[in-house]
Computed example of a mutant assay.
Amino acid sequence: MADILDLDAEVVAEHTADLIRWLPVDRPRQVVDLGCGTGAGTFALLAEFPEAHVTAVDTDVDHLRRLRDKACELGLADRVTTVQADLDTTWPDLGTPDLVWASASMHHMADPARALRQVHDVLAPGGLFAVVELAGFPRFLGTDLEDRIHAASDRRHADLVPHRGADWGPKLTAAGFTVEAERTLAIHLPQSEVVGRYALAGLRRMRGTVDDVLSAEDLAAFDDLLDPHSPTGLLHRTDLAVRTERSVWAARKA
């Protein structure tokens, strides 16, 4: 998963930066990245806000290790603090941030309403909470087979991540925030070397979730797509592209 997160960060880097520039926030000094993964949001936030210090929070020790290593490589170690925590249990001390960024992480919370209230409690008065949500896993081909693969994977994950793709606006309002702005960004990136690696890694991960759901014919066609040596495989498709959407809600604490 860490490799996929790194590839995702590389592929959509410009779009992530665009979303951060769009936020109605002025030079935050203390920023928290909730569910930071390997640091896509953390490093984009550091680049956009050169005076900020980012506290990066995640449950996964390997993700945080990768993030720290990259921060050291970039000479940013003094501007990043990593915190390993399970936010479904006891929240760590996150200070009083001016900005909290949560990209594709809120839908993983067992009790999102509780997590939203926790963020409201820790934010500085007038602070901003940015929630970014994905429209499911990206599409790469737009074929009927890919539709069936996604449908099968979505059914498998429905109980595990029931809040994925939720409308966070009403949930933020219920937690005491004022939603100041919303935006949905359509992403369509043409074939490239990194797009090919991203698609192959992502679909390989999905393969294990549909093994006992798809028909034998679909599984054979799926395996052919994942074969880097097949002339009809994913890496040789001229129609390969990244197609997805990311939505963001910018919510203010009064």
Rank of each mutant, 00 (worst) to 15 (best):
Asp3Met: 07
Asp6Gln: 15
Glu10Ala: 12
Thr16Tyr: 03
Ala17Glu: 03
Pro24Thr: 10
Arg29Pro: 00
Arg29Met: 15
Gln30Gly: 08
Gln30Thr: 11
Val31Ala: 03
Leu34Pro: 02
Gly35Ser: 12
Thr38Asp: 04
Thr42Phe: 03
Phe43Ile: 06
Phe43Gly: 01
Ala44Met: 10
Leu45Met: 08
Leu45Pro: 04
Ala47Leu: 00
Ala52Gln: 05
Ala52Asn: 02
Thr55Gln: 04
Ala56Arg: 00
Val57Gln: 02
Thr59His: 05
Thr59Arg: 06
Asp60Met: 02
Val61Trp: 11
His63Ser: 07
Arg65His: 14
Leu67Trp: 05
Arg68His: 08
Asp69Tyr: 04
Lys70Met: 12
Ala71His: 04
Glu73Lys: 12
Ala77Ser: 15
Thr82Met: 01
Val83Ile: 09
Gln84Pro: 00
Gln84Gly: 08
Asp88Lys: 14
Trp91Cys: 07
Pro92Ile: 14
Pro97Gln: 05
Ala104Tyr: 06
His108Leu: 14
Asp111Trp: 06
Pro112Ile: 11
Ala113Phe: 07
Arg114Gly: 06
Ala115Leu: 05
Arg117Phe: 10
Asp121Tyr: 12
Val122Cys: 07
Ala124Glu: 10
Pro125Phe: 00
Gly127Arg: 03
Ala130Val: 15
Val131Tyr: 00
Val131Pro: 02
Pro138Met: 02
Arg139Lys: 14
Arg139Gln: 06
Thr143Val: 09
Asp144Pro: 03
Glu146Ala: 07
Glu146Gln: 08
Asp147Gln: 13
Arg148Glu: 11
Ile149Gln: 00
Arg155Glu: 13
His157Gly: 07
Asp159Thr: 15
Arg164His: 13
Ala166Leu: 05
Asp167Ile: 13
Asp167Lys: 07
Gly169Ile: 05
Pro170Gln: 09
Phe177Val: 11
Thr178Tyr: 08
Arg183Val: 04
Ala186Phe: 09
Ile187Phe: 12
Ile187Pro: 02
Glu193Val: 15
Val195Asp: 05
Arg197Glu: 10
Tyr198Leu: 03
Leu200Asn: 02
Ala201Cys: 11
Leu203Val: 08
Arg207Ala: 13
Gly208Ala: 14
Val213His: 05
Val213Gly: 01
Ser215Gly: 11
Ala216Glu: 12
Glu217Val: 15
Ala221Arg: 10
Phe222Glu: 02
Asp227Leu: 11
Thr232Lys: 13
Gly233Trp: 06
Leu235Asn: 15
Arg237Glu: 09
Ala241Cys: 14
Ala241Leu: 09
Ala241Glu: 06
Thr244Leu: 01
Arg246Lys: 15
Val248Lys: 00
Arg252Thr: 13
Arg252Ile: 08
Ala254Asn: 09
